[in-house]
Design a protein around this nucleic acid. Structure first.
Lengths: 189, 189, 189, 189
DNA sequence: GATGAATGAGGTTTCATTCAT
DNA sequence: TATGAATGAAACCTCATTCAT
């Protein structure tokens, strides 16, 4: 009861989709994990496709909010903006790691509808405009922004997957190294 | 007739699995694409799972061969080894781009059996030993090698996905930028 | 619906398996006869094999119960015990004739699992111990009990198949003849 | 080569059908056992159904021949005729035990066509006329001949299955007991 | 509103049969 | 003539979805 059933369903879904993928996750699995009846899911979502799309859009929106919250003013330096983006990602990853995996592994999936793709594009646009600006100032490499974004995104997933697996614990020192790594990857010199 | 049916099936499978994923690809889809009867697939593969596993292992092996072919001697410089690895990846990506997507998107998939995972690990080990060596010489960042590998792997996929989509054409200049990007991402200074 | 779905499925199955055999009976046939959806069968039975095995075991158990119910005390005469066994079989055959055919025609079938075979053996053991006792008292022929059992079992099936086909109706007189026939087959003099 | 391929196929078929039944026996199984290609079977038999029917008819015919060979003259005594029938069955069982199982387990099978059923009926008729004659002379029990036939047939199968399993070896003494058992089962007094 | 038993469309897999060699 | 690779109809089985309770 405590939590809203819709939230329980979304929470169960994001874990399962992240872990197994959309097609390998069944409605009964979600119902079990969410501790609701299978039929209940259909009171909140028209069908499995709308469920995955609403889930995708909500988590994209949450990430966009995290990024836009306290975003540095336009006139701020690129480094400042990079710092903000980096720590926004860190913050999101620490709170919604499953969501990050889910977004990454489903962003090319056929199950997404137009609205989800648009949502995803608008997320990429946040990074894209940052990169375009840096490239204009000759501070960021003149590569297609998509390549730079995907590289850093991949790095984030790798970094957190590694920590999550307990191979070693997150320290401030490691985080600094990681941040520098991301910056070096995209910056000129 | 021309080609071996087994090869036709593998070729159709790698495209479909890369594009849609294991669970969203049906046997009739593969049969149609491969221009064989659905039953024919079962003359060459015990079932859908062994098909995906044999496919995975064959393409991992091919990538390992590409990397190990003319690999610089142990005493060679890190830069030389990096160049080799980079161009091996380029060569593989240009010949088997679908395979690269397929490997990337399925390396965490539950459909893989122990042998496939082992195969994948042995591929990662090739990169890993290169990174470990570079770290010992203080030429490569002291981050978990997994993070560095994933970052560069992600960059490759992003780079080729972008080119493939025709957003712009591959030039030697762009390739140089891209190579520098990958090196900067992992190297110290 | 009126009856329990599981019971409907079992009832349809025993008729079809008795009539056509396990392998010639399809799930859709059972679903049609039981008036349930094909998928419903899998809510009650893991697969077709567990269906046939549970069915077999349930009907064997029912026959064992019929036999053991009011079984004469150990010290009773062989003739008394024979009468009991005979009428237990008559009672079972009249209520569950299809089951008798089903058991007979599937007792050597590869579809049976270890538990079913064990169940069947324990049924044979009931007859076997009766025969062994009679042989000790030199009232029953010194042939392998299996031969005697199969002979009488075959006679029962023949007798009831004949009656069922309506070639003639069951009368007390006929039943007496039949009983005498079974007894003569196994007894000494 | 040695044997005619058709004979090899029939021989393999009778073993497999007796052991596993018509529907559980596949054409590749028969081809393997017969050491011929699967396609070869279709050079000798139109399809699987005609194969089983020709097989059935040939073995029924063989049994009828065994019985009719040296059959006692009409005026002979019932006991003489019984002896002949009994030893004809023994002879057949010893030479073609698999065929006896095959006939028994398929005589009610839906795979049989009209001609096979007719063939089977004409076999039963041989036994039936013997029984009718014995009943007229009040030497055989006044039960439906079908019941008596099935009983003795079942006894034969049980007897030979037991011996085949090696539970004990066939002796002249045992055979005499068995013969007496069959006679007692059907005779008056 | 919540449930989960029931359903059947659609997936995976088998196998009788064909046909090029 | 003999073969066995290839086929697709039809089998078994799963699971998204519905609906009576």
């Amino acid at each position: 009861m405590q939590k809203d059933k819709r939230a329980q369903i979304l929470e169960a879904s994001v874990h399962l989709f992240a872990e197994r993928g959309f097609h390998a996750t069944t409605i009964p699995m979600i119902a079990d994990q969410a501790k609701v009846g299978a039929g209940t899911i259909y009171r909140y979502f028209e069908n499995k496709e709308t469920l995955v799309n609403e889930l995708f859009q909500e988590y994209i929106e949450k990430l966009k909010q995290t990024i836009l919250n306290n975003y540095p003013p336009e006139e701020a330096e690129i480094q400042t903006k990079f710092n903000h983006l980096f720590f926004a990602m860190v913050s999101y990853a620490e709170e919604h790691l499953q969501a990050l995996y889910f977004i990454d592994s489903h962003s090319n999936n056929h199950c997404l509808d137009a609205k989800s793709l648009e949502s995803y594009q608008s997320l990429l646009e946040l990074f894209n405009s940052f990169i375009k600006e840096g490239q204009k100032e000759r501070l960021i490499k003149p590569l297609p922004s998509y390549v730079l974004i995907v590289m850093v995104f991949g790095a984030f997933l790798g970094y957190y997957k590694f920590i999550q697996r307990g191979h070693f614990s997150a320290t401030d020192h490691l985080m600094d190294e990681f941040k520098k790594c991301c910056w070096d990857a995209i910056s000129l010199h």
